Simulated scan of single mutants.
Amino acid sequence: MAKTDTDTGELAHAVGTELQAHREKRGWSRPAVAACSDGNVSTKGLQSAEKATRSVSIRQLELVGHLYAIRPSELLLRAERRISWEPVGVAVDLDILAECRHDVLRPAAQWARQERDTGSLTVRLLAPVELASLARRCRVDPAELTLLLTTQAQVTR
């Protein structure tokens, strides 16, 4: 997909396509949706969301979800499936992580030293499943581990 100055990304385009599909499935025009929203959704705002010239906020997803009788999470899930979206993971610098002294990250530091000693590349992309496994070792959830890695271990994302 060609990028423009107003390009909001592939997921935003997929969300917009889903919104438009749900509206059209009901045979509703954009002005009709706006009129049903008690002033919470404008015709121009809906067009911008459907065409992905601007990103949709969580609040807007909630409002449109009520109008279309679909959960915001379901709209996002359908958009993710539309583009075969998968999380990318977190890039870690094994040298930095191996030297980290943060208590919670000690098991991760040990893992990094082992990986580094086996001749692994110094920078490695942890897939979500690897991140989850390392999080279990550290006894934290993957989101917390990601935060710790990006703050305490100076790992790039």
Rank of each mutant, 00 (worst) to 15 (best):
A127E: 14
R81S: 04
A143F: 01
R106Y: 02
G119L: 00
T118L: 10
V123E: 13
R136D: 15
L147E: 09
W85E: 07
S133V: 12
R82I: 11
L105H: 07
D117T: 10
A108T: 11
G89T: 09
R106F: 05
P87Q: 10
C138P: 00
R82C: 03
L94G: 03
R136Y: 10
I96F: 01
L147C: 06
L121R: 11
D141L: 06
L97R: 10
W85Y: 14
A109H: 01
L76G: 03
L97Y: 07
V90C: 06
C100V: 06
A143V: 07
S133K: 13
C138Q: 04
R124D: 00
C100F: 00
L145D: 01
S120N: 05
R139L: 10
A112P: 00
E144H: 04
L149V: 11
E86S: 06
E99Y: 01
I83Q: 12
A135L: 09
G119H: 04
E99N: 09
W111N: 09
L94Q: 11
D93L: 11
L105W: 03
R116M: 14
R137S: 14
V129N: 07
R116G: 08
R113T: 13
V104I: 14
R116I: 10
V92E: 01
S120Y: 03
L105T: 12
E74Y: 08
I96H: 03
R124H: 08
V123Y: 06
Q114C: 11
A79H: 04
